[in-house]
């Protein structure tokens, strides 16, 4: 009897095309729990579309997508939204945080609008990330790096199956970028599959798996992962 857990993400032949043209031609991707993968590609290659598909914001026009074994193509829109809320954390470089909430409230927002119920979890995580003193700050008072780390905390606080990070270190100084990457790495170590979309080869090099997206087609860049290199 096979008792192996299904992969966190299994995408096969995933495709999407916009009415105006462009999109994603084909993406095959499997991420196990705890994996950390990077997707590299030039602008307009379909990275944002891939992220929106994996984040269950867009529905694919072809192919299949399973999240921990659940066939997302069989879900109603409301069920997809619920699955995204429960199982997926998304970090966006330029769409950061909700400006009308404080830092801890932004983190607690990952659970939905009943913020008070998740105050402790949010504050504890900010403490773990060394940002306890920022918990009550208005997000407009925070630096770009601090905001990005809070966005990571928001994505990680519910320990989702999958964390999608879009250019999480873009515009950050090396020290802050390293801190953000360490936060994402710790999420992977706690069992989340992490997929990072990046232009930065240093960031991609710090991941276990690397993919390249070119003209809408996703392909594997390196089969040997950094983790294996480290183990060797």
């Amino acid at each position: 009897m096979n008792t192996a857990s299904p992969p966190a993400v299994a995408a096969e032949g995933l495709a999407f095309s916009y009415a105006s043209g462009g999109g994603l031609t084909r993406a095959d991707l499997t991420l196990e729990a705890g994996a950390m993968a990077a997707v590299e590609g030039p602008s307009g290659s379909g990275k944002s579309t891939l992220l929106a598909l994996l984040g269950l914001i867009l529905s694919p026009s072809a192919g299949s997508l399973h999240i921990t074994g659940t066939d997302t193509g069989a879900l109603a829109p409301a069920e997809r939204d619920l699955l995204r809320q429960r199982s997926i954390g998304i970090v966006l470089q330029d769409l950061g945080l909700l400006p009308f909430l404080s830092a801890w409230e932004n983190v607690a927002a990952a659970f939905g609008p009943r913020l008070g119920r998740h105050r402790t979890a949010a504050r504890d995580l900010l403490g773990d990330l060394g940002m306890a003193q920022l918990a009550d700050s208005r997000v407009t008072e925070l630096s770009g790096g601090q905001r990005q780390r809070i966005a990571v905390a928001r994505a990680a606080v519910k320990q989702p199956v999958l964390i999608l990070a879009d250019e999480p270190t873009s515009g950050l100084d090396p020290k802050t970028a390293n801190s953000v990457m360490n936060s994402l790495r710790s999420c992977a170590e706690r069992g989340s599959a992490v997929l990072i979309v990046t232009h930065d080869s240093t960031v991609a090099g710090a991941c276990d798996q690397r993919y390249v997206l070119d003209e809408g087609v996703l392909s594997t860049a390196h089969k040997e992962t950094a983790r294996k290199e480290n183990l060797a």
């Binding site: 984040g55 914001i57 829109p77 409301a78 997809r80 939204d81 619920l82 995204r84 809320q85 429960r86 998304i90 966006l92 769409l95 950061g96 945080l97 909700l98 400006p99 927002a109 990952a110 939905g112 928001r154």
Partner: peptide
């Protein structure tokens, strides 16, 4: 629209 995009990624559907 940016806020609404964040709410989308946090699990809100367009009906919400």
């Amino acid at each position: 629209i940016g806020q609404f995009a964040i709410l989308r990624i946090l699990g809100s559907g367009r009906p919400e």
